[in-house]
């Protein structure tokens, strides 16, 4: 039986956590992702960059008061990739 290959962009714990968080909301800022993933700032920045480069998330940088504020939003491509990934995982687990 052939298994569907897993998307290497999503098959990483932190990147998968970021995308899973964004699936349930319209938009989340960097601090929200930091709190809920438990990642370090540096690692979170790197993984957000990789998701952005893959076209899975849209990143907007602005200011909140005096402080810089980074907001992330899942793109249609990111949502599709997530759905395909979940389907593949379900196949591996025999739930597909």
């Amino acid at each position: 039986m052939a298994f569907a290959p897993l998307d290497p962009v999503l098959h990483n714990q932190l990147r998968l956590a970021i995308v899973s968080l964004l699936v349930g909301v319209e938009e989340a800022d960097f601090n929200h992702l930091l709190t809920h993933t438990g990642a370090t700032r540096g690692n979170l920045s790197v993984q957000i960059g990789k998701l952005k480069d893959a076209g899975y998330i849209l990143v907007t940088k602005g200011m909140r008061g005096k402080y810089p504020n980074t907001k992330c939003r899942l793109t249609a491509e990111g949502l599709h990739a997530f759905e395909v990934y979940v389907q593949a995982i379900r196949g591996y687990l025999g739930r597909g």
Partner: peptide, 25 residues
């Protein structure tokens, strides 16, 4: 958070994060 994941671990990450997002009112 960079260790290789099994499908079970992937599913747990997804479920945990989606649950957290649901509570973000």
């Amino acid at each position: 958070m960079d260790a290789p994941m099994t499908p079970e671990q992937s599913l747990r990450v997804i479920e945990r994060m989606i649950d957290q997002a649901k509570q973000s009112f």
